[in-house]
Amino acid sequence: MTEHTTVIVVGAGVAGLTLGNMLQRNNIDCIILERRSREYVEQRQRAGTVDTRGVRMFREWGLGQMVDAGGHPEVEGGFFIDGHAMPIEVDDDNESIFIPQQTLVHQLTDRFLEGGGDLRYEIDITLENLEKPLVRYQDTVIAGDYLAGCDGDRGVTRASVPEGALTRYSREYPYSWVSALAAVPARTSGMGIHERGLAGLIPRGTENSRLYLQCPVGDTPDDWPDERIWSEIEARFGTAVATGPIIDKQIVPLRSVVHEPMSHERLYLLGDAAHIVPPMSAKGIHLALFDAETFARGVIRQVREGDGSLLEQYSQTCLHHVWNYQAFAAWITDLMHDAGDPSYTGEFRKQTARAELQRQFESEAANRVFSELTSGVM
Protein backbone atom coordinates (compact mmCIF):
# COMPACT_ATOMS: atom_id res chain seq x y z
CA MET A 1 0.00 0.00 0.00
CA THR A 2 1.08 3.58 -0.65
CA GLU A 3 0.63 6.27 1.99
CA HIS A 4 -0.13 9.80 0.88
CA THR A 5 0.59 13.15 2.47
CA THR A 6 0.68 16.75 1.28
CA VAL A 7 4.33 17.37 2.22
CA ILE A 8 7.09 14.83 2.76
CA VAL A 9 9.73 16.47 4.95
CA VAL A 10 13.16 14.83 4.91
CA GLY A 11 15.20 15.81 7.94
CA ALA A 12 14.24 16.54 11.57
CA GLY A 13 16.54 19.49 12.21
CA VAL A 14 15.53 23.10 12.75
CA ALA A 15 14.26 23.65 9.19
CA GLY A 16 12.24 20.43 8.96
CA LEU A 17 10.70 20.66 12.42
CA THR A 18 9.84 24.34 12.08
CA LEU A 19 8.17 23.61 8.76
CA GLY A 20 6.32 20.65 10.25
CA ASN A 21 4.97 22.75 13.12
CA MET A 22 3.86 25.54 10.79
CA LEU A 23 2.00 23.12 8.54
CA GLN A 24 0.48 21.31 11.50
CA ARG A 25 -0.88 24.55 12.95
CA ASN A 26 -2.61 25.16 9.61
CA ASN A 27 -4.09 21.66 9.36
CA ILE A 28 -1.90 20.61 6.44
CA ASP A 29 -0.70 17.04 6.75
CA CYS A 30 2.96 16.14 6.50
CA ILE A 31 5.30 13.32 7.43
CA ILE A 32 8.81 14.04 8.74
CA LEU A 33 11.44 11.38 8.04
CA GLU A 34 14.82 11.41 9.81
CA ARG A 35 17.77 9.14 9.06
CA ARG A 36 19.22 9.31 12.57
CA SER A 37 17.73 8.30 15.92
CA ARG A 38 15.88 10.81 18.07
CA GLU A 39 18.54 10.50 20.75
CA TYR A 40 21.28 11.34 18.25
CA VAL A 41 19.45 14.34 16.81
CA GLU A 42 18.59 15.83 20.18
CA GLN A 43 22.10 15.38 21.59
CA ARG A 44 23.95 16.72 18.55
CA GLN A 45 25.95 19.68 19.86
CA ARG A 46 25.62 22.71 17.59
CA ALA A 47 25.63 26.44 18.01
CA GLY A 48 22.33 28.22 18.09
CA THR A 49 21.27 31.83 17.82
CA VAL A 50 17.69 32.79 17.07
CA ASP A 51 17.85 36.43 16.02
CA THR A 52 15.16 39.07 16.36
CA ARG A 53 13.46 38.09 13.12
CA GLY A 54 13.34 34.44 14.19
CA VAL A 55 11.95 35.22 17.64
CA ARG A 56 9.21 37.37 16.13
CA MET A 57 8.46 34.72 13.52
CA PHE A 58 7.94 31.99 16.12
CA ARG A 59 5.59 34.22 18.09
CA GLU A 60 3.63 35.23 14.98
CA TRP A 61 3.02 31.56 14.19
CA GLY A 62 1.89 30.77 17.73
CA LEU A 63 5.14 28.99 18.56
CA GLY A 64 6.54 31.53 20.99
CA GLN A 65 7.25 28.92 23.65
CA MET A 66 10.04 27.61 21.40
CA VAL A 67 12.11 30.68 22.26
CA ASP A 68 10.64 31.72 25.60
CA ALA A 69 12.45 28.92 27.40
CA GLY A 70 15.82 27.28 27.00
CA GLY A 71 17.96 30.34 26.31
CA HIS A 72 21.44 30.78 27.68
CA PRO A 73 22.08 31.70 31.31
CA GLU A 74 22.95 35.28 32.10
CA VAL A 75 26.74 35.70 31.98
CA GLU A 76 28.99 38.69 31.58
CA GLY A 77 29.57 39.29 27.88
CA GLY A 78 32.14 41.29 26.02
CA PHE A 79 34.08 42.07 22.91
CA PHE A 80 37.84 42.31 23.31
CA ILE A 81 40.61 43.61 21.06
CA ASP A 82 44.10 42.69 22.27
CA GLY A 83 42.69 42.17 25.74
CA HIS A 84 40.90 45.53 25.91
CA ALA A 85 37.13 45.43 26.40
CA MET A 86 35.17 47.39 23.80
CA PRO A 87 31.82 49.02 24.58
CA ILE A 88 28.82 47.23 23.09
CA GLU A 89 25.42 48.85 23.11
CA VAL A 90 22.51 46.47 22.55
CA ASP A 91 19.60 47.92 20.58
CA ASP A 92 16.45 48.11 22.71
CA ASP A 93 14.56 46.45 19.86
CA ASN A 94 16.95 43.49 19.74
CA GLU A 95 15.09 40.34 20.78
CA SER A 96 17.78 37.86 19.71
CA ILE A 97 18.48 34.96 22.05
CA PHE A 98 21.13 32.30 22.26
CA ILE A 99 19.68 28.82 22.50
CA PRO A 100 21.65 25.61 21.88
CA GLN A 101 20.42 24.11 18.64
CA GLN A 102 19.72 20.75 20.26
CA THR A 103 17.47 22.49 22.80
CA LEU A 104 15.49 24.17 20.03
CA VAL A 105 15.22 20.87 18.16
CA HIS A 106 14.00 19.10 21.31
CA GLN A 107 11.30 21.72 21.92
CA LEU A 108 10.15 21.71 18.29
CA THR A 109 10.02 17.91 18.34
CA ASP A 110 7.92 17.81 21.50
CA ARG A 111 5.50 20.39 20.13
CA PHE A 112 5.09 18.54 16.82
CA LEU A 113 4.50 15.17 18.48
CA GLU A 114 2.15 16.59 21.12
CA GLY A 115 0.05 17.94 18.25
CA GLY A 116 -0.24 14.46 16.75
CA GLY A 117 2.50 14.90 14.16
CA ASP A 118 3.94 11.96 12.21
CA LEU A 119 7.72 11.89 12.83
CA ARG A 120 9.69 8.76 11.96
CA TYR A 121 13.30 8.15 12.99
CA GLU A 122 16.04 5.87 11.64
CA ILE A 123 14.54 5.95 8.17
CA ASP A 124 16.94 5.35 5.27
CA ILE A 125 15.03 6.45 2.19
CA THR A 126 15.32 6.44 -1.57
CA LEU A 127 13.62 9.09 -3.68
CA GLU A 128 11.82 8.53 -6.93
CA ASN A 129 10.15 10.80 -9.46
CA LEU A 130 10.70 14.33 -8.14
CA GLU A 131 7.89 15.55 -10.39
CA LYS A 132 5.46 13.43 -8.34
CA PRO A 133 7.46 12.81 -5.17
CA LEU A 134 7.69 9.22 -4.03
CA VAL A 135 9.72 7.98 -1.08
CA ARG A 136 10.56 4.35 -0.34
CA TYR A 137 12.04 2.72 2.74
CA GLN A 138 11.84 -0.94 3.69
CA ASP A 139 8.33 -2.04 2.63
CA THR A 140 6.85 1.45 2.90
CA VAL A 141 6.00 3.81 0.04
CA ILE A 142 4.97 7.43 0.65
CA ALA A 143 3.62 9.69 -2.08
CA GLY A 144 3.52 13.43 -1.51
CA ASP A 145 2.37 16.51 -3.34
CA TYR A 146 5.59 18.27 -2.33
CA LEU A 147 8.98 17.23 -1.02
CA ALA A 148 10.93 19.42 1.43
CA GLY A 149 14.64 18.65 1.54
CA CYS A 150 15.76 19.62 5.05
CA ASP A 151 18.45 16.96 5.40
CA GLY A 152 21.59 19.06 5.32
CA ASP A 153 24.56 19.44 3.05
CA ARG A 154 25.18 15.71 2.63
CA GLY A 155 21.56 14.59 2.51
CA VAL A 156 19.82 12.45 -0.05
CA THR A 157 17.42 15.11 -1.35
CA ARG A 158 19.84 17.44 -3.11
CA ALA A 159 21.87 14.44 -4.26
CA SER A 160 18.74 13.22 -6.08
CA VAL A 161 18.60 16.29 -8.32
CA PRO A 162 19.90 15.48 -11.83
CA GLU A 163 23.45 16.61 -12.55
CA GLY A 164 23.55 20.04 -14.11
CA ALA A 165 20.19 21.18 -12.76
CA LEU A 166 21.79 23.13 -9.89
CA THR A 167 24.74 25.51 -9.81
CA ARG A 168 27.00 25.46 -6.75
CA TYR A 169 28.73 28.66 -5.64
CA SER A 170 31.27 28.36 -2.85
CA ARG A 171 34.17 29.95 -1.05
CA GLU A 172 36.72 28.28 1.23
CA TYR A 173 38.28 30.52 3.89
CA PRO A 174 42.07 30.47 4.53
CA TYR A 175 41.71 29.42 8.17
CA SER A 176 39.73 26.98 10.31
CA TRP A 177 38.39 26.87 13.86
CA VAL A 178 39.25 24.66 16.76
CA SER A 179 35.86 23.95 18.30
CA ALA A 180 35.92 22.50 21.82
CA LEU A 181 33.13 21.67 24.26
CA ALA A 182 34.19 22.12 27.88
CA ALA A 183 32.43 20.81 30.97
CA VAL A 184 32.57 24.13 32.77
CA PRO A 185 29.99 26.94 33.04
CA ALA A 186 30.89 30.06 31.07
CA ARG A 187 31.33 33.08 33.33
CA THR A 188 32.40 35.25 30.41
CA SER A 189 30.93 35.18 26.94
CA GLY A 190 31.97 36.92 23.77
CA MET A 191 34.63 37.27 21.11
CA GLY A 192 38.29 38.16 21.39
CA ILE A 193 40.38 39.59 18.55
CA HIS A 194 44.10 39.26 19.12
CA GLU A 195 47.31 39.18 17.11
CA ARG A 196 47.40 35.46 17.94
CA GLY A 197 44.01 35.01 16.22
CA LEU A 198 40.29 35.07 16.92
CA ALA A 199 38.74 33.42 19.99
CA GLY A 200 35.16 32.78 21.05
CA LEU A 201 33.63 31.66 24.34
CA ILE A 202 29.91 30.86 24.40
CA PRO A 203 27.65 29.23 27.06
CA ARG A 204 26.16 25.84 26.26
CA GLY A 205 23.41 25.54 28.82
CA THR A 206 24.22 25.96 32.51
CA GLU A 207 27.05 23.45 32.75
CA ASN A 208 29.09 23.61 29.53
CA SER A 209 30.95 26.12 27.39
CA ARG A 210 31.85 26.13 23.69
CA LEU A 211 35.33 27.43 22.83
CA TYR A 212 36.44 28.61 19.40
CA LEU A 213 39.97 29.37 18.25
CA GLN A 214 41.17 30.46 14.82
CA CYS A 215 43.80 28.06 13.50
CA PRO A 216 45.58 27.31 10.22
CA VAL A 217 43.94 25.09 7.64
CA GLY A 218 45.46 21.64 8.05
CA ASP A 219 45.62 21.64 11.85
CA THR A 220 44.25 18.53 13.58
CA PRO A 221 42.79 18.04 17.07
CA ASP A 222 46.12 16.47 18.09
CA ASP A 223 47.76 19.85 17.50
CA TRP A 224 45.53 21.31 20.18
CA PRO A 225 45.90 19.58 23.56
CA ASP A 226 43.61 20.84 26.31
CA GLU A 227 46.31 22.93 27.96
CA ARG A 228 47.00 24.79 24.72
CA ILE A 229 43.32 25.50 24.14
CA TRP A 230 42.85 27.09 27.57
CA SER A 231 46.12 29.00 27.28
CA GLU A 232 45.10 30.47 23.93
CA ILE A 233 41.61 31.38 25.15
CA GLU A 234 43.08 33.36 28.04
CA ALA A 235 45.75 34.99 25.87
CA ARG A 236 43.33 36.06 23.14
CA PHE A 237 40.73 37.40 25.55
CA GLY A 238 43.35 38.96 27.79
CA THR A 239 41.51 37.87 30.90
CA ALA A 240 41.33 34.83 33.15
CA VAL A 241 38.59 32.32 32.35
CA ALA A 242 37.20 29.39 34.28
CA THR A 243 38.82 26.18 33.06
CA GLY A 244 37.71 22.56 33.19
CA PRO A 245 37.67 19.24 31.33
CA ILE A 246 37.31 19.40 27.55
CA ILE A 247 34.90 16.66 26.49
CA ASP A 248 34.97 17.12 22.74
CA LYS A 249 37.14 18.89 20.17
CA GLN A 250 37.21 19.10 16.41
CA ILE A 251 38.56 21.22 13.58
CA VAL A 252 35.84 23.13 11.70
CA PRO A 253 36.61 24.39 8.17
CA LEU A 254 34.93 27.68 7.29
CA ARG A 255 33.08 27.95 4.00
CA SER A 256 30.23 29.70 2.25
CA VAL A 257 28.01 27.71 -0.15
CA VAL A 258 24.88 28.46 -2.18
CA HIS A 259 23.02 26.14 -4.55
CA GLU A 260 20.82 27.68 -7.25
CA PRO A 261 17.96 27.26 -7.79
CA MET A 262 16.62 26.08 -4.44
CA SER A 263 13.93 23.93 -6.05
CA HIS A 264 13.64 21.31 -8.77
CA GLU A 265 10.28 20.03 -9.98
CA ARG A 266 8.41 19.45 -6.68
CA LEU A 267 11.51 19.24 -4.49
CA TYR A 268 12.28 22.32 -2.40
CA LEU A 269 15.60 22.68 -0.60
CA LEU A 270 15.68 24.29 2.84
CA GLY A 271 18.47 25.19 5.25
CA ASP A 272 21.89 23.57 4.88
CA ALA A 273 20.64 21.50 1.96
CA ALA A 274 20.58 24.75 -0.03
CA HIS A 275 23.24 26.95 1.57
CA ILE A 276 25.91 27.15 4.27
CA VAL A 277 27.27 30.21 6.05
CA PRO A 278 30.40 30.31 8.24
CA PRO A 279 29.55 30.10 11.97
CA MET A 280 31.07 33.52 12.66
CA SER A 281 27.91 35.10 11.22
CA ALA A 282 25.48 33.14 13.45
CA LYS A 283 23.02 33.10 10.52
CA GLY A 284 22.57 29.38 9.85
CA ILE A 285 19.35 29.14 11.89
CA HIS A 286 18.17 32.49 10.53
CA LEU A 287 18.33 31.25 6.93
CA ALA A 288 16.77 27.89 7.81
CA LEU A 289 13.82 29.62 9.48
CA PHE A 290 13.37 32.02 6.56
CA ASP A 291 13.27 29.09 4.12
CA ALA A 292 10.81 27.17 6.28
CA GLU A 293 8.45 30.11 6.62
CA THR A 294 8.63 30.99 2.92
CA PHE A 295 7.88 27.41 1.88
CA ALA A 296 5.13 27.01 4.48
CA ARG A 297 3.36 30.14 3.27
CA GLY A 298 3.56 28.85 -0.29
CA VAL A 299 2.05 25.46 0.56
CA ILE A 300 -0.69 27.01 2.70
CA ARG A 301 -1.75 29.36 -0.07
CA GLN A 302 -1.70 26.55 -2.63
CA VAL A 303 -3.82 24.23 -0.46
CA ARG A 304 -6.29 26.85 0.72
CA GLU A 305 -6.65 29.02 -2.37
CA GLY A 306 -5.29 26.95 -5.24
CA ASP A 307 -2.72 29.73 -5.80
CA GLY A 308 0.74 28.36 -6.56
CA SER A 309 2.44 31.73 -7.08
CA LEU A 310 4.35 31.71 -3.79
CA LEU A 311 5.69 28.22 -4.46
CA GLU A 312 6.72 29.27 -7.95
CA GLN A 313 8.62 32.19 -6.45
CA TYR A 314 10.13 30.16 -3.59
CA SER A 315 13.66 29.94 -4.96
CA GLN A 316 13.78 33.54 -6.14
CA THR A 317 12.40 34.84 -2.84
CA CYS A 318 14.81 32.82 -0.72
CA LEU A 319 17.89 33.45 -2.86
CA HIS A 320 17.43 37.21 -2.68
CA HIS A 321 17.51 36.87 1.11
CA VAL A 322 20.26 34.24 1.13
CA TRP A 323 22.70 36.30 -0.92
CA ASN A 324 22.09 39.35 1.29
CA TYR A 325 23.10 37.34 4.35
CA GLN A 326 25.91 35.53 2.56
CA ALA A 327 27.36 39.00 1.90
CA PHE A 328 27.04 39.82 5.60
CA ALA A 329 28.50 36.46 6.66
CA ALA A 330 31.52 36.82 4.37
CA TRP A 331 32.09 40.41 5.51
CA ILE A 332 31.92 39.73 9.26
CA THR A 333 34.00 36.55 8.92
CA ASP A 334 36.76 38.32 6.99
CA LEU A 335 36.65 41.36 9.27
CA MET A 336 36.89 39.51 12.57
CA HIS A 337 39.69 37.23 11.41
CA ASP A 338 41.70 39.75 9.40
CA ALA A 339 41.76 42.17 12.34
CA GLY A 340 43.76 39.71 14.42
CA ASP A 341 46.62 37.52 13.27
CA PRO A 342 48.40 39.29 10.36
CA SER A 343 50.08 36.07 9.17
CA TYR A 344 46.94 35.20 7.15
CA THR A 345 46.33 38.38 5.13
CA GLY A 346 49.09 40.82 6.12
CA GLU A 347 49.61 43.79 8.39
CA PHE A 348 47.99 46.29 6.00
CA ARG A 349 44.74 44.29 5.94
CA LYS A 350 44.89 43.93 9.72
CA GLN A 351 44.94 47.70 10.12
CA THR A 352 42.13 48.34 7.62
CA ALA A 353 40.01 45.64 9.28
CA ARG A 354 40.51 47.28 12.66
CA ALA A 355 39.53 50.62 11.19
CA GLU A 356 36.32 49.01 9.90
CA LEU A 357 35.62 47.57 13.34
CA GLN A 358 36.21 50.90 15.00
CA ARG A 359 33.71 52.46 12.61
CA GLN A 360 31.00 50.16 13.99
CA PHE A 361 31.52 51.72 17.42
CA GLU A 362 31.90 55.33 16.28
CA SER A 363 29.41 55.75 13.42
CA GLU A 364 25.68 55.65 14.12
CA ALA A 365 24.97 54.91 10.45
CA ALA A 366 27.43 52.00 10.33
CA ASN A 367 26.15 50.65 13.62
CA ARG A 368 22.53 50.85 12.46
CA VAL A 369 23.20 48.73 9.36
CA PHE A 370 25.24 46.27 11.42
CA SER A 371 22.47 46.03 14.02
CA GLU A 372 19.80 45.39 11.39
CA LEU A 373 21.84 42.58 9.86
CA THR A 374 22.76 40.94 13.16
CA SER A 375 19.13 41.06 14.29
CA GLY A 376 18.01 39.65 10.93
CA VAL A 377 15.48 42.34 10.11
CA MET A 378 17.14 43.75 6.97
Rank of each mutant, 00 (worst) to 15 (best):
E3D: 11
T5I: 08
T6A: 09
V7F: 06
V9S: 01
V9N: 00
G11V: 08
L17F: 03
L17G: 01
T18G: 05
M22W: 03
L23R: 01
N27Y: 10
N27A: 14
E34L: 09
R35W: 06
R35H: 11
R38M: 12
E39M: 13
V41F: 07
Q45N: 12
G48I: 01
D51C: 14
D51L: 13
R53M: 11
M57A: 13
F58M: 15
E60C: 08
G64P: 06
E74W: 10
V75F: 08
G77H: 12
G77P: 01
F80Q: 05
I81Q: 09
I88W: 06
I88P: 02
P100D: 06
P100W: 05
R111P: 02
D118L: 11
Y121C: 04
I123V: 15
L134N: 07
Q138R: 15
V141K: 10
I142E: 06
A143N: 11
D145C: 10
D153H: 14
T157P: 11
V161I: 15
G164F: 01
Y175T: 04
V178T: 11
R187D: 08
H194L: 01
H194F: 02
G197C: 07
P203Y: 02
T206L: 13
L213V: 02
I229W: 02
W230Q: 05
E232C: 10
A235E: 09
R236E: 06
A240M: 12
A242V: 11
K249L: 08
I251V: 08
V252M: 07
P253H: 00
S263Y: 03
S263K: 13
E265D: 15
Y268R: 06
A273D: 04
I276R: 04
P279C: 07
A282E: 09
K283W: 09
G284F: 10
F295P: 04
A296I: 08
R297G: 03
Q316S: 14
N324S: 12
Y325C: 04
I332Q: 00
D334H: 13
D334S: 13
A339Y: 02
G340N: 08
E347L: 15
Q351E: 10
T352G: 00
A353K: 03
E364P: 01
E364R: 14
V369E: 13
F370P: 02
S375M: 15
